[in-house]
Design a protein around this nucleic acid. Structure first.
Lengths: 353, 353
DNA sequence: AATGGTCGGGACGTAATCGGTCCCGGTTGA
DNA sequence: TCAACCGGGACCGATTACGTCCCGACCATT
């Protein structure tokens, strides 16, 4: 039997956010006493208008009193706040996880959604939603020349599909150009980066480019391909990408899905590969032990990038995520509660050995 | 300590509606099996588009599967539905109350909101919201000549203030003309019908007219006033009203608030007055025992009206509401759970004696 | 095999809402 | 006395919601 809250998370997923927002406002307001809209909005990092809408709502519910000197929480509001405190603790536990992860892996920002993507499809959707939100925000924050489209590099995987599905048209992403970070990597077509890039373009009203590169070609064939003008052109665009959104996979799982040859498997095994991202395989220390031979982004391109967003969750991926983050290209991580908890355990174990 | 649900009812009142809507869709869908959008929309009385948005959401949550033959509830949906059933019963209890009230008092439609307006301010707000929704719907359903504004007659009272506060601009009410149903009845200004009419006009973008009639004048003075062109003009407009929205009060309570003279009090007492509405006082049988002398709507005008909406709640008003409804001018009743339950008790008592 | 009805999905224009921004007159506290 | 801050009002572009119609696919009946 599910709880009321779980049912709501399925049937009306946004309410949790709304509740959290209003709770936060009430809390700050109780702490700050009589304070005005602009001051409060600045303190909470909200825009004046949305905070205004919220406070007007809270006023209409009789939870805050509005006086000429400012707003303050009413008796009813204080009582409600007290009743909410315990049930909010659970949700705000995530904020603490975020801070600890950001510190442990040197990230600019971390978002942790509740649940475990391994077991709960909802958690995966939440990952996608959060990823889409971060991408949108990152794009909005970029300074852009008018004539130059914002290039966003995308990898494949089911998690990134979720990100694509939660994107929508916005100012920041208007006219953005979505490109696959790397060429064909032998996935199913609906999980391939090209498919995802086109979805994103469609949903945001942007454009996209594809690299039509055959799978399973050798290093020398890549060199030949790169001299093709079509491929070359797209590859050049990809290297101008300012944002990248990528998933993270377990090394062997990815190798299996991509049907890599026995020789490579052996290489991964001797190298102790645990993680895959962007077609690179990493060991637990975050060192690259193998690189899929295909065109597109190289590690140094990723380093140059302004915002690299990793989206991956599920307890089973914790080790892989930690490994990739140790390599240290990422700026933003979107993950779930299960992975976050496990990652912190890994990282404290490493620190102690 | 409040329950999660009660907290939500305060902090996010709309979710209950959303939940109910989605639950209803799931339920009907489970019952109907594979069925299409249009068919389902017709069965549920929704527009095709909103049902589509909902089913797309339900699909995105994995609760329904969409096939070429139609939509059907998925395994996960069935399990969720089972979990929801008990918690929904509580909310759907209200639907049953609505049906019984409609049958008992011969009403076209009844809306029962949860709670007790006597004790819970939220219930009163819900009354206002439901009243505003019904008014909007009634207005939208009217056939209107282009050049003739839709006239809506309004009474006073705190409940109708709530209705006004929940109105917003809509197509149906565009250009509507709000008028006080009757002249000054000696209330506080913020509870007077004129004030409310102007609020409604402002919120909907419509117009309003006021009757500037002094309080406490005799019958003969009324006749004189009616010959005044200004008064006369507005009174004529009022009588063309096609919709009325009114509150219902307890007889003595209203008499007290309006500071009526001792003689009238005596008249009310001998007549057994229990209820007041539109300035008319009713006994338990629904007979008019007194009429406040002022200009505006007469009982026969109300009879002619296309839609008369009564909005009143609170257990203490149950008897008064029942009395007014027995007179039988009303088409639509908006009330709350406490009043609804008590009214049904009254009505069954009456039937048995 | 033909056909009429219903299916999901796509598209489009308009109404309504949201949200960023600025302004204003009043209040307050230094 | 005055500057800073207050709530409320207003405006406008961006975004969303929604009514409506169309299309090709599919199915059952003819």
């Amino acid at each position: 039997m599910r709880t009321v809250l779980e049912i709501q998370r399925v049937l009306a997923p946004d309410v949790v956010d709304v509740l959290k927002k209003r709770y936060t406002i009430l809390r700050h307001l109780r702490h700050a006493g009589a304070v005005g809209r602009r001051t409060l909005a600045a303190a909470l990092g909200m825009s004046e208008r949305v905070l205004r809408a919220e406070t007007e709502f809270l006023k209409s519910q009789g939870l805050v009193d509005i006086e000429t000197s400012g707003m303050r929480v009413s008796e009813a509001g204080i009582s409600l706040l007290a009743d909410m405190e315990p049930m909010m603790k659970e949700w705000f536990g995530l904020a603490e996880l975020e801070d600890r992860l950001a510190a442990a892996f040197g990230l600019r920002q971390v978002v942790v959604v509740p649940g475990d993507a391994d077991r709960d499809p909802l958690a995966k959707r939440e990952l996608g939603k959060a990823g889409a939100a971060e991408l949108t925000r990152a794009a909005a924050a970029m300074e852009r020349a008018d004539n130059e489209p914002l290039v966003v590099a995308i990898t494949g995987g089911s998690t990134i599909v979720e990100v694509a599905d939660h994107l929508s048209a916005s100012q920041g992403l208007k006219g953005a150009l979505f490109v696959p970070a790397r060429g064909g990597l032998g996935e199913r077509v609906e999980l391939q980066s090209g498919t995802i890039a086109s979805t994103m373009a469609k949903r945001t009203g942007g454009g996209y480019r594809l690299m039509h590169v055959p799978d399973d070609v050798g290093e020398e064939a890549i060199a030949t391909l790169m001299s093709e003008p079509h491929i070359r052109e797209v590859a050049d665009i990809v290297r101008c990408a300012r944002i990248a959104v990528h998933g993270i996979g377990e090394a062997y799982e990815m190798a299996r899905r991509r049907r890599v040859d026995a020789e490579t498997i052996q290489k991964l095994r001797t190298g102790g590969a645990v993680a895959e991202s962007f077609g690179y395989y990493y060991n637990r220390a975050g060192e690259v032990v193998h690189r899929m031979p295909t065109v597109g982004l190289r590690l140094e391109d990723i380093q140059r990038m302004e915002t690299v967003i990793a989206v991956a969750g599920g307890g089973s991926k914790a080790e892989a995520i930690a490994a990739v983050l140790k390599n240290g290209q990422e700026d933003v991580l979107i993950t779930d509660e299960a992975a976050a908890t496990a990652m912190l355990q890994f990282s404290s174990l490493d620190a102690s050995t």
